[in-house]
Computed example of a mutant assay.
Amino acid sequence: MDTKRRVLIVAYDDAQILDIACPSGALDIANRYGAQPPYSIELATLGRRAARSSAGILVGAGHGLEAVTGRLDTLIVVGGIGCEEAAADERLVGQVSRLARLSRRVASVCTGAYVLAAAGLLDHRRVTTHWGWGERLAERHPAVAVDASPLYIRDGNVYTSAGVTSALDLTLALIEDDHGPTLARAVARELVTHLHRPADQAQISMFLAAPPPEDRLVRDLMGYVAGHLAEDLTPAALAARAGVSPRHLARLFTAHLGMTPVRAVRAARTEAAAYLVRSSALSMAAIARRCGFGSAETLRQAFLDHYGVTGDRIRRMPDMPRARIAPGQKTPGP
């Protein structure tokens, strides 16, 4: 019986260094917090050459892919701007295909999905990748069901994740599968990540998908929305604040955010509510009031629409201890 869970991370030139560091760092912390059996973390490249990350940092490999034998617990292929060249390298793809047959489970971080797809490992599976690369992946591999919305997806024994830091969410999910939520929570705490995000959470937050800098009106209004979630944020109220007609406001939001003012406000309220669910002990009713929802049931439906899960399920995910929020304290943004 194996005394360790053997994890092999596959790298190549112009890989994203965070795609390597996030899984290896989280698994290392899991070992220090008592993972049993512990993880054996290995990095491999073709020919055992040092991989030049896209940041210019050389990462030494402990193994040549060609020389790896024996059973593997987990095979992880990283992503980065070198993913397309890696996916076109028949030697690399052939080794990934071979090693996948030796592995209990296979995972990709970010655009590492391009390599798995080239190896035929994603055919007829639902997968994700970085939101900016999903359409191209789908065009190149019609047999792959690409959904570039979630943070990570499990389809059978194949796991795929979105861009860069979602590697932490994926790795925490692997740790939870292997050792349970208590260890996953301890690792998240050590990493000083404020939560282990649900798999179906959208990759792009309203608060990260800012409108073009030149459109100050939309940008300023969304800033106002984020700080006044419990107030009147109807299209009429927002239009009056901006000094434009509701019709013109709708045109601006559609052009710069890709959604109507009503949808933009609902998304902002939902994401702020999700933050409070994960970071506080407030009741759903209290969170609904703070974030401008009429009732806990309305908030529940918003969570289902936005994340595909209920607030209770979001709250049960492993996370940092919930901070107490004093009455009257300003609602934080996500």
Rank of each mutant, 00 (worst) to 15 (best):
M1P: 01
A11P: 00
A11D: 02
D14P: 02
D14Q: 12
I17Q: 14
C22E: 15
G25H: 06
L27Q: 02
D28R: 05
G34W: 12
A35T: 10
Q36T: 13
Q36M: 11
P37S: 09
P38W: 04
L43M: 13
L43F: 13
R49D: 14
A51K: 02
S53C: 05
A55V: 08
I57F: 14
G60P: 00
G62V: 03
H63E: 14
G64I: 02
T69Q: 13
R71T: 11
L72F: 06
D73F: 14
I76H: 02
G79R: 05
E84Y: 03
E85N: 11
R91H: 07
G94I: 10
Q95P: 00
A100P: 15
R105N: 06
V106T: 15
V106P: 05
G112A: 07
A113E: 07
A113Q: 08
V115G: 09
A118F: 03
A118P: 15
L121R: 12
W133E: 15
G134A: 14
L137H: 02
E139A: 13
E139R: 15
P142C: 09
P142M: 12
A145V: 10
V146A: 11
S149P: 00
P150M: 06
Y152K: 00
G156S: 07
T160W: 07
A162Y: 06
L168H: 11
L172P: 02
D177S: 09
A186Q: 14
V187E: 10
D200K: 10
I204G: 00
S205N: 04
M206I: 12
P213T: 12
R216A: 15
D220R: 11
G223E: 10
G227A: 12
A230G: 12
T234I: 06
P235H: 04
A240V: 07
S245T: 15
P246G: 04
R247T: 13
R251F: 03
G258N: 05
G258K: 00
P261V: 01
V262Q: 11
A264H: 13
A268G: 08
T270M: 04
Y275M: 10
A281N: 11
A281L: 10
L282T: 04
M284A: 14
A286I: 03
A286P: 11
R289W: 04
R290H: 13
G292P: 00
F293I: 08
A296W: 08
Q301D: 12
F303Q: 09
L304V: 11
Y307K: 03
G308V: 07
G311T: 01
D312S: 08
R316L: 09
M317E: 14
A323F: 12
P327W: 02
